[in-house]
Design a protein around this nucleic acid. Sequence first.
DNA 1: ATCCTCCCCTAC
DNA 2: TAAGGTAGGGGAGGAT
Length: 1196
Amino acid sequence: MVSPHSPTTSNSSALFGSDDTSFLEALGAAVLPGDVAQAQNGDAHRLSSSPSPILEPSSLEPPPCAQPTSNALPHISSDDEPEQPATRTPRHAGLHPQHPPFVISDDDEPSLLQVESPPLAQSRYKKRAHSVSSNDEPSRSPTNSPTGVSSSHLDSDTYGASRFGEFGEYMRRKRAKLQIQNAEMGDTPRGEASGSQLFKGLSIHINGWTEPSVQELRKLIVENGGIYQAYIDKKTLVTHIITCSLTPAKVREFKHMKVVKPEWLVQSAKAGVLLPWQDFIFLPGGRPESAHGRLAQSSLTEFSASKPRNSTLDGAKENPLSSDRNPSAPLHLLQAPSLHPSPPIAPVPKYAKHESNPAAQRAMADPTWRAAHTSAAPGFIAGYYANSRLHHLSMWKAELRTLVVEAQERAERGDFHTASRTSETGTGVSMRGAALVMKNPLKGKEKAGHKAERVVMHVDFDAFFVSAGLVSRPHLRGKPVVVCHSQHAQGGASSTSEIASASYEARKFGIKNGMSLQQARRLCPDLVTIPYEFERYRQLSLEFYTILMSHADDLQAVSVDEALIDVTSTVAQMRVVPTGANDDGDSSSTDIAKELAESMRAQIKAATGCIASIGIAPNIMLARLATRRAKPAGSFHLLPAAFRDLLPDLDIQDLHGFGRAARDKASEKLGTTNLGELAGRSKATLCDALGNATGETLYNSIRGKDDRKLESDKPRKSVSCDINYGIRFENDDQVEAFIHQMSEEVAHRLDAINMKGRSLTLKIMKRDPSAPVEPPKFMGHGQCVTYNKQSALAGPYGHATSDPRLIGSLSWRLLRTLSIPPRELRGISIHIQKLDAHTGSIPAPGHAHLPFRPAPNPTASGTIVGPAPKARAPSSAPVTAPSEPKGPGPAAGADLPSFSQLDMSVFEALPEDIRKELETEYERRSAPAPNKPEPPADLVPRANSVIPARGGGNDRPCGRGMGAVSSRGRRGSLGRDQARGATSWAHRPRGRGHGRGGLLALPPAPAPMIHSAARGARVRPSQQPVRPSSPLRPLQRLEGRWAPPQGPHEYIPPPPPPRARFAEAERPVLRRGDADTAPVVEGVDVRRVVRAWVELFVRHVPHAEDVALVGGYLVRCVVTDVGAERAVGVMRWWGALLRRRWAVWEHADERDEEPEPGEDTRAEVVGMAWWRAYREVGDSLNAVVRKRFGGSLKFR
DNA sequence: ATCCTCCCCTAC
DNA sequence: TAAGGTAGGGGAGGAT
Ligand SMILES: Nc1ccn([C@H]2C[C@H](O)[C@@H](COP(=O)(O)OP(=O)(O)OP(=O)(O)O)O2)c(=O)n1
Ligand SMILES: [Mg+2]
């Protein structure tokens, strides 16, 4: 910002050469030539693991700030590109030099020629690497460095199913190729026309060129009930591979799979019977696909062709519903190993010819569009988070963990059985036992109690988002459906929108979660898309968890749609008291655990309308594996003996936690990724190849062993805010404002869990010089170089802090040391580590279970002071609390709630009079005056009511969190009631939006603006920023105390005229209805704040941060659907205020003229700046509205 | 050996 | 037009 150094270009010169390329390059050359070279050849594929060369420029960088330690890390390369499924090299690619895979030119069209090279053996780099990984990256600039930058280029679309890095280029291309082929084929979506189920249960991948053609085979497969796998990717289930030729590399890869000739399908279809595949085994011999690769040696070692040795053959089986422990049934979980990305090596580095996204280039060329949709837009963060599925997933997970812990605590203390009886493993004890059980985890690592074998279940909804969406769209059941943002059928042809979840019907076409819509459309033109419904997912999840809690001894929240539960005692009890009528006898003939699972599935189905599958086993690892076999719509009990028989059919990637990198390492160092084969390796061998811990885990997993206990209460170790999408800045001011907004977010999250941090790491993604300005993925980050900078974070007395100003200023300082032109930024992350519980008090050490926001006092009310000290009181603490003693310095300033959570806490922080007024307002409007403005979010019932007041229903947790999950109830009754409880929460009164952080939070009150102003002012470092310092003045007074609002408040003159309530007629068109009644609530204070803000800055240009804050608030209003009217009301109010003073400039089309700093009090400049801000906010608001409702709002 | 820092990797 | 977040496990290399 302030550009001490010139922002853009100049900066570059600062440290690195103009593009860092040169600088790095030079450096790189000097330092690691060897490595690079090696890399080049060798392994391309394995990027990741390998070490990277080192360069540590740390020396280069000036210490960021003060003394904190910072290390400058050079950068790493980053990930790749966007797309592709396969593609992505690991994001970390940084590490090694990767090679550019070969070049492919277009994405879509992969040339067939590609070759794959055999996996090469890679030379491993020597070790130095790691630490520096980052560095190396730099060196690889396309231009110079030998290798090109990482190449990822993928073209346009292909986004792969897997997120970032994943397979190698080769697979990527191949995948693209297949897609094309499919597209051409014009397959009908519903292929099942023929109705034959001949290939039912088969999941087939076609490798390379075949006769008959891929299109024909694919059609044949689909029409006969089989599943066609366009490509193999991690964890994909593939039962057979069809091919006419295999390269040596493929031979190795498919060594353990059932590789068959096309004739198998053709003849089976002809015969009308599924002929034994063994009669059609493909034997290599012929010439491989073109391989030209070279390089490494192809270790063709084992040429044995495929064949699975598997005895069990065939996997096709259908669901395991009945499965039962039939050991013989193989789970066909085979996954295709393929991946291996052995990227073929490219003979020539391609310089990245990454393609760019035309639509993005066009959009980006429009200044208005940029101003309203990129990271430079006012409400960007709020809008982005409100729509980010991954953000929701992450937040939900954290919230669920909290709820589980609370429910368990409640159970423990609450009722009858107290904690004392610990782990009694047993059966007899009631649920509580379960609670106690929890405790164990912490300590005993061994498998504890052994009384009975543990019974662990992994419960996971089938195609969750889709399933949830179909609840209200029953007519779409049975069709290929997908959940993604892009709803326009037409646009889908070239949409880079990612598919969050694909229905099983869609999966038959090869569509996978994470794939781009355009890619999916090529596979299935008639694909149906449905929108996200975050609020529904949350509600269904609560129902789901409530049910699980009623049966489990312990529960580990894995995701919004998935959990691990320990039902050991439940099962034991069932055994003793046979519930069912079976034969009673004991269980020998029946599988009690499976019965329990089925009853839970039925219960879940009844409560949510969605289907879940359950994997049952003696430990976590096996339970997860069992789930694969169970899906879709089933349950499967996997016993160790059966698992052993399955080994030959399993790939290392089938194990949870082992991804592409692990697979590559195994392939490279051990020569195989098949578990059957790895079973023969010694533990030492595995450790040597994968690391000690990982090696041992693998060793044990292969033997069906896994002693891990469910973890439901681990303490939080870090808090972060990462935004690597839509980052497109034009100047430093925007960047600085954004950094501060992110800091507010992080600070808020820290406060929410009552923690403070002592270490901060800033991660920056910068566009790789070889990458196009606009990457293939719309608004994505594209291929980047990343930089990590860590520094000590210290508050007043050197203590941990959560002060957003400190976090923001430090982050900004760190960023500046990188001298990256604003336009080159593509991603920013702020991570806080070394967390300390907020000053004493509260929380039990250990963890954080404080929910998002500490409830204002649960139990003993007021007493809570414990947490009090928190500075940002808003969030939790009610009002008053003066801030904690902040030390010297900047201290105590006001803190603001960050986007993510603004909620009532803000209200509470408002000056008394304003609050009063608000309350009055409520009454006036007859609205049921919330006694309190609204319970602050989430308080979960928590302790206070001791026993979970479940029935009572109303403890409403309201607010932002997931709501509450009732603790387990008696297990006998399958929790009906509990479920109810949850349900009730589900419909929380108002807060529906999922907006941000808490997701549920409602649009917060804007109080923050003021704070922000204050903050901004102070933050501004010495350099004189652009803005006038004057704002400081007023703010100054605020400084000392933290209740900020006070200050500004005073300046507010009597309400200006526009007290506006707009005429009904003018009301925005969007939703009508209750306009008045409802919303307004917060509208009032918002207006006051806006007024105060304007008054405060009458002679100054508004701070971008504040503009963003207001914009964020308004966007949230619209997004959350809580009040488009409110947003309009505020905008009108704001417009009226501006008009009062600067009516003349309202339409002055100013354009350039950045108001320069200084005391630019000239009314003209200030007025235009205000109008510009107003327009910006209005535009971004309308952008959102247009998208969601199709219309636009009128603010005047 | 053990701990600490700086990433990578994985998962949803 | 799209919404590529986020936390914890663990490996590698250096410090102790
Ligand atoms: N790349 C991904 C993977 C998952 N999800 C979301 C949508 C999914 O519905 C939900 C659960 O993920 P799962 O891995 O459990 O996948 P599904 O539930 O969709 O399918 P299934 O569990 O049947 O394989 O998480 C996502 O947004 N993006
Ligand atoms: Mg699922």
